[in-house]
């Protein structure tokens, strides 16, 4: 009797374990099946590097370069803002802050991670967008820059908590060794702690960026959604994610447009996958 119970439980857990992989495979297959159909009408090259996205004109023009550029521009901007602040914050929490401030900061960072992206987008729309408009004297504040700033807030919790973890797990003896040689606190941080934690910090950055590139709601609300090639960070852009979210509802099932949106999904999937794998590689390197 006990053996049967044991057997059933083990099998049940096994099913749960395999289910996640099964679902991922299903999703990916579905994405491929729907997405690849678009390449019957447009070549992969024209799709990826075409400069015009007019999915409902006749004939439809399905070039997603403006969308890729939009995503990359917003992500790059967010990275430039969030990496120095995030890593700086992690160093402060791990190395400098007194215990009490450390606790408060960590709680604050967790809170920042808990804000739903639609709320961040809404706040950005009300406060940041008019500010950007006024500062740069633009016709509209719905720009890539606004999106970058808002997304930087979303990437920061990830970057801070993982980078702080990486710094914390550097053996204490490293720091003591440097200090015993007469290093100042800053020299010990810059020349010993940061290099020793570098792979963990890189992983933190990659995961932060991964979060930014997959983000949809906030960017849709504040980047202006113009599917044209951006020529600066102060113009409206549209990202890959926002395109899918905004157009999927209107696309006729089975149309070229519909398949193209799935193909964008494939591209996003590949980008996120690549970023996550890179982050994993860095994390593994750290464990060795």
């Amino acid at each position: 009797m006990r053996k049967i119970k044991e057997f059933v439980i083990v099998k049940l857990i096994q099913v749960c374990g395999l289910a996640s992989i099964f679902f991922v495979a299903l999703i990916f297959l579905f994405l491929l099946k729907e997405g690849l159909s678009v390449f019957k009408t447009v070549s992969p090259f024209d799709f990826s590097f075409g400069k015009n996205w007019y999915p409902i004109s006749e004939p439809a023009q399905l070039g997603i370069l403006p969308l890729i550029s939009g995503s990359l521009l917003v992500t790059l901007g967010a990275a430039v803002i969030s990496i120095p602040i995030g890593v700086g914050c992690a160093v402060y929490i791990a190395e400098i802050a007194p215990l009490k401030i450390k606790e408060i900061l960590k709680a604050g960072i967790e809170l920042l991670a808990a804000i739903p992206s639609v709320v961040l987008g809404f706040i950005g729309m009300i406060t940041l967008v008019p500010l950007v408009k006024n500062i740069f004297h633009l016709p509209t504040g719905l720009t890539a820059l606004s999106g970058s700033i808002m997304l930087a807030f979303m990437a920061m919790p990830t970057i801070v908590s993982i980078a702080e973890d990486a710094l914390y797990s550097v053996p204490k003896t490293y720091k003591e060794g440097a200090l015993a040689l007469g290093a100042t606190h800053w020299q010990a941080i810059w020349r010993v702690m940061l290099p020793a934690a570098s792979s963990g910090i890189l992983a933190a950055v990659m995961l932060g960026i991964g979060r930014v590139i997959g983000e949809t709601m906030a960017v849709m609300m504040i980047t202006g959604n113009a599917a044209v090639m951006p020529n600066s960070i102060l113009v409206p852009v549209r990202t890959l994610t926002a395109t899918i979210a905004a157009e999927m509802g209107e696309a006729v099932v089975g149309s070229e447009h519909y398949f193209a949106l799935f193909a964008i999904g494939i591209i996003l999937f590949i980008i996120s996958f690549a970023i996550n794998v890179t982050a994993d590689l860095f994390l593994q390197k750290r464990q060795q």
Binding site: T173, E176, L181, A183, V192
Partner: peptide, 26 residues
């Protein structure tokens, strides 16, 4: 007052760079 620790703690650098580490820092 220099200090030598229980476990040898070379840095992931060359032999030369390890020796001059503290000197460079000054």
């Amino acid at each position: 007052i220099g200090m030598v620790f229980a476990l040898p703690l070379p840095l992931p650098l060359s032999i030369f760079e390890n020796v001059v580490y503290g000197v460079r820092m000054q």
